[in-house]
Each structure stands twice: as C-alpha cells, then as structure tokens.
Design a protein around this nucleic acid. Structure first.
Length: 642
RNA sequence: GCCACCGUAACUCAGUUGGUAGAGUAGCUGAUUUGUAAUCAGCCUGUCGUGGGUUCGAGUCCCUCCGGUGGCUCCA
C-alpha cells in the first residue's frame, strides 16, 4: 500500500495513506483553516480541494485571505453568474469569465442589452444556485471531446478558444446543468459562495480587439461573509464621496465646459491657487536640484514634428494642422523637440553635461472621446517636464538623482505608498540591443540604490527606450501612473544631437524624458482624492477663516484678517450677519483648516478662538501666536488634520 | 471610436398610464446681532441637452445629433 508524504509549510513532513483528497489534507494540516480552505497549493500549483494530492508534495492551504484565494473564489462566482444567465437566458452565448484584481466578470453575447432588472433576476437565481450546494467538478476532456461538447451546446466562442488549445490540456468544470471550459481551480461547491453583488454591465470587445464583436460584460464581486461585502460596498461609497470631479465642483476648484470642449480644464481661483502653490514648490526644488528652466511655444512647424517622428508614430493623437503662410503648424503633443532645439542651438561640450531643461509645458493630445475622465485623462494638460542630456557614462548616476528627486517630491505631497515598474524593450523598437541593455540595467541599479521596490514590465517600454514608471496609491488603494523616467534612443538620433568629448570627438548624448508629477491636472486630481478635499495647510486655498459673532466685532475681525494676509497666511473673513453656527458649518464644508472665531472676549484679549478642521477646539490664543503656529505648519508642509 | 445608461432652475433632485413643470439649496430684498455644523419672511429662477417625428396634445413615446457616466480599445 502506497503512502503520501506531505511537506508542510512549517517544513515538517507527514505521511498519509494514498488517495487522500485536498480537503482531507487540509483538515489534517489545519483543522481550523480547513473550513476556510478554497483550494490547495501543491508544489506551488493551485489545485482543487477534491482532487487527490500526489506523493511527495509540499502543501499549502489557500484561503480568501490571499489574492490567489480570492481569485479562485471570484472565478467560481463568475461561473455561478454564467450558470444563472444560461438558465434565465438560454440564448446567451458564453465568452470568458475570469477573476480580476478585485472581483470578476463574465462576457456574454446576447441579442438584447441586459437591464438592471435582469441583473436583479440573475442575482436572485445565483443565490438559489448557491443555496442548492451543487458540487463543482473538474473533468478532463480530449480536444475532440471538448470541441463536440461545446459545438453541441452552440457555444461558438468556447469552440474558438478550444481550437487554439493543444490536446491533453483541456479541462471543464461542471456544476449541475452547467459546464464551462476552464483551467480552474474552483471551490468545491456552489454553497461556498456566500455573499455577492453584480455591479455593472459594460461593453467589451471579444478578445479585446476592437475589430471584433462587442459583447456584454457583467462585473461583480463576492465575499465569504455578508459583512465583508457590506464593507466593500461602503468602500465604494467612500470612493464616490472622494471623487475629484464631485469635490472639484463642491469646493469650486475647476470645471470642464461643454462650450470650451471636452478634456479642456478651466481652473477656478481656488484650484488655481493650489496649482500655483504646487508649481512654486516645484520650481524651487528644481532650482535646488540643478535644473535650468526653459520656455517653449505651443505650436511648431510640421517639419519639426516630422524630424521628431511624432507625425509618423503619433499623428492620430495630434490636433490637426493649421496653415499659416503656406506652412503647416501643429499644436505640441510633447515638449521634447523644443528642448532639443535649445540644446542644438550651439555646439555642446562634455563640460556642460548633464544639461537639464525643465518646463511646465502645456501639451495637447487628441484623446478619443470615450477615454476622457475628469482631471485624470484630459486633452490639454501641463507636464512637469524635463529633458536631461547626459553622457552615457554618467547616466546611472543621473537616473539615481532623478528617482531620488521623484520620491522626495511625491512624499512631500503625502504619497508614501507607490509602486514602480521598469518597462523593457517592446517588439517594435529603435536603438541597438546594447543601448537597451545598458539603459535597462541603469534603471534597475538606480532603483536598487535608492531602495525603490519595483516590478518588471517586460516589453512594456516605449518604442524609443526603456522607462521606469511610478504609480501612486491613493488612500483607497487604487494605483495611478504619475511619475515617469524614460530613455530616448530615437530623438538624439533623429535630430543628430552631439557633444564634443574629452577626446575632441563628437559623441551622441543620452536623452532622458522625465516627469515627476506627470501632468499637473492628473496630479491635482490625485491630490483631491488623496486628501478628500481637505488639503494640508500649506496647500489649502483658504488657510484660515475669520468668523465674527456679531457686527460689533467686524472692525477687529478685519484687522485680524489683514494681519494674517500680511503674514502670508491665506485668510478670509465671513462678515455676514449670520449665526455663528451657520458660518462654522459653511467653513467646515469648505474644509478650511482653521476657523478663527472672534467675539467680544477675543476683541478684549486681542486673540482668536481657534477651531481646527475636524472640530477640535484649540482654545483662544493671541493673533501672533496663531500666525507663528500656522507659519510653522506651512513651512514644514505639515499634512495637517483631516 | 465602440457598447450600455443618463441629460428637468446655478447645484442636488421630484415629475405617476402622454394633458404645455415642482422641491430643497444657492441668489436677491428685508428683518434678526446671535459663542462653535443650517434664524425667519418675501421675491426671482427654466427654449425640460439639440433638431426632427408620432399625437388633438410630448419633460414623458420614436429617430438624429451634442454632452456626460461606466466599461472596452487606446495612452507614443
């Protein structure tokens, strides 16, 4: 009689009789975990619980607490969704239904759109199916069997998928009257799926190709408990509450006007004030870090864009040309050609390198109408752009400088949680292999030296060079790409850029594009959501609001406001004949960091009663004391209270 | 660009089976002079996104276009 040796996560080894299933293994190695077990990880491979474990395996229990476990769970929920849809709408054809990072979807081809009422019906049916506790079983089929199986069902999309699979690798999962082509693994029974919600229906091209038919994608999420689902739905509400578009309107920060055009942002006084503060800080830091500021025009001749290659590679994303005196001009989608022309304005020596040209350069890109999104995806935006021209031997050091600079910049704005990706050579690319290798290596070394954790994004580089992108995580855990540092092997070549080296020979410099904040618009959107509109004192458009209790204190209140303004504190006075509670309420809704209440007492003591954002009463303090208190916060870029 | 949904006052939204529009907030005027999240009264507010169609009659039904939203594709 054979036996199974299991190597457990703690390193110990146990022996069991052969033929033991995953579920039994789970019960033996972790009785408490076993009821939460969704699948098993056997020698690093995910496997169903009801499949016997092979001899000599290392075993781990997979639960909902790991991403892998969640994906198994969500994947099984997507099958449950598909089963419900097939029962209610037998005409619907199945496409694919995977788990995604958060939740799952299933794509269907159905003659009419699914309505919200349909979703309710589907959810109901899913609940019934889950309650029925149908076992979920894996079955391995030959290619021929699989083909005929799905052909009979009329599942043409599945047939297309199977056509591309090789024999011997095909499995299906069955639960009652439903079967789906699937690699697995899945939970062992529909009853494991406890709490779920269908979130939305959206269009999606079959196989992600816009030439293909558009299918209907149903998105959903599921959890092992009702409480977890509730919590998730609450978090969705929180996301909506923090939406920069909503807050932008409520706090009067910016707008997008129909008559101006989509994706073209109008910055209102308060938003513009925050932007100015960000930009001023940005300029000071760049000056300290060895950058030179340049300015460049908004349009340039067609021939410039031909040389740069933009007309060749990027034309469909550029605003169309305008003709002046027989010459073609284009609105700039990028600043680099201009900076290159500044470089090329005279012969450069190795002694001048690295040259760092920085510009808050406003560019326009013709994004397709469907992709616009608040401030995060727009058609006109300002990049905090810089182009660095550097001798090849210095590039590693330069990259370290840039990454270090980026990280410091992001931290100042309260972003501590970010993720870096190094993107390597794509299939279509320019530049020789050695350059790519060297540059990619430089990015890795630099990232390591500044302790920037990163993931590789193989083949994700631009056609002209490798890059490192930093995506910022906001308070809600969503990632947005902001910073980017890119090598460019294309333009120095196309513009025939050179410098004279120590050897008195002409050499080609390396060129780095970099943006730390990315676009000011996107970054501002991020800031709004990150702080939920409650900006830290140094960024708040109004830092202190003076509130008089009655008209008697008006003169004194004006004096206080003027003192604050003179001291560089952005202050406003609410002089309306309203009740104190009303003025407090309004200032609170505006998310002003400090409300300064002024009544008879304060007039007598030459003081202000300070109420901090969040409602804490800091008590009465002399005006001067408050001024130094706030100045200190501004100086330290204190994140303040939320 | 594609699929779906949505578009009513400055804002947030009602508007029943088709019978030519309503609330709250904001704004304006006046009263009130108030101690930490909404004082009271009065007044004003609309080409119901656009153009067309069906109908005796359209905010409501149908089509076109424009714009927004959620996705898809795209993001050099």
């Amino acid at each position: 009689m054979s036996e199974i040796r299991l190597r457990l996560p703690d390193g110990s080894e146990k022996k069991y009789a052969a033929g033991i299933t995953g579920q039994e293994v789970a019960e033996k190695i972790g009785p408490r975990l076993a009821k939460d077990a969704l699948a098993l990880k056997v020698d690093g491979r995910l496997q169903d619980l009801n499949i016997p474990v092979e001899n000599n395996s290392a075993v781990e229990i997979v639960t909902f607490n790991t991403q892998e476990g969640r994906e198994v769970y969500w994947h099984s929920t997507s099958h449950l969704l598909a089963q419900a849809v097939k029962q209610l709408f037998p005409q619907a054809k199945l496409a694919i239904g995977p788990a995604i990072e958060e939740g799952f979807y299933y794509d269907f081809d159905f003659e009419r759109p699914f309505t919200p009422e349909d979703l309710v019906r589907i959810e109901k049916r899913m609940a019934e199916l889950a309650k029925a506790a149908t076992p979920i079983k894996r079955k391995v089929l030959s290619k021929a069997e699989a083909l005929s199986f799905f052909q009979k069902l009329g599942e043409t999309y599945k047939v297309e998928l199977i056509d591309e699979l090789s024999d011997g690798t095909i499995s299906i999962y069955e639960q009652g009257d439903f079967a789906d082509l699937c690699r697995g693994p899945h939970v062992s029974s529909t009853s494991k799926i406890k709490a779920f919600k269908l979130l939305s229906v959206a269009g999606a091209y079959w196989r992600g190709d816009e030439k293909n038919k558009m299918l209907q994608r149903i998105y959903g999420i599921s959890f092992p408990t009702k409480e977890a689902l509730e919590e998730y739905l609450t978090r969705l509400e929180e996301i909506k509450r923090r939406d920069h578009r909503k807050l932008g309107k409520e706090l009067d920060l910016f707008s997008v006007s129909d008559e101006v055009g989509g994706g073209l942002v109008l910055w209102h006084p308060r938003g513009a004030l925050i932007r100015t503060t960000v930009e001023d800080f940005w300029r000071r830091e760049h000056q300290k870090n060895g950058y030179d500021f340049v300015y460049s025009p908004h349009v340039g001749r067609g021939t410039l864009w031909e040389t740069s290659g933009h007309l060749g590679f990027y034309r469909e994303n550029m605003y169309s040309s305008m003709e002046v005196e027989g010459q073609e001009f284009y609105v700039k989608p990028m600043n680099c050609p201009f900076h290159i022309m500044i470089y090329k304005n005279k012969l450069r020596s190795y002694r001048e390198l690295p040259m760092r040209f920085a510009e808050l350069g406003t560019v326009y890109r013709f994004e397709r109408s469907g992709v616009l999104h608040g401030l995060l995806r727009v058609r006109g935006f300002t990049q905090d752009d810089a182009h660095i021209f550097v001798a090849p031997e210095d590039m590693e050091q330069e990259i370290i400088r840039v990454i270090d600079f980026t990280v410091r910049m992001l931290r100042t704005f309260g972003f501590d949680d970010f993720k870096a990706y190094i993107a390597t050579r794509p299939e279509k690319s320019v530049g020789d292999y050695t350059m790519w290798e060297q540059a990619t290596q430089a990015l890795k070394v630099a990232a390591d030296k500044v302790n920037l954790g990163y993931e590789m994004d193989e083949g994700g580089g631009a056609f002209y060079g490798p890059k490192i992108d930093i995506k910022i995580k906001d308070a809600l855990g969503r990632l947005w790409q902001c910073s980017t540092v890119q090598f460019d092997f294309n333009e120095p070549e196309r513009f025939d850029m050179t410098y004279i080296g120590v050897d008195n020979q002409a050499h080609r410099p390396y060129m780095i594009h970099r943006a730390l904040l990315g676009s000011i618009e996107r970054f501002f959107g991020m800031l709004i959501e990150h702080y939920a509109g409650a900006f830290p004192v140094w960024l708040a458009p109004v830092q202190a609001k003076v509130v008089s209790i009655t008209d008697k204190q008006l003169d004194y209140a004006k004096g206080v406001r003027d003192q604050l303004l003179a001291a560089g504190v952005r202050a406003e006075l609410d002089a309306r004949s309203e009740k104190l509670g009303f003025k407090i309420r309004e200032a609170t809704l505006e998310k002003v960091p400090y409300i300064l209440v002024v009544g008879d007492k304060e007039v007598q003591q030459n003081a202000v009663a300070v109420r901090e954002r969040g409602g804490q009463d800091l008590g009465s303090m002399p005006v001067n004391e408050f001024i130094s208190f706030v100045q200190e916060k501004i100086k330290n870029k204190d994140t303040g209270t939320e």
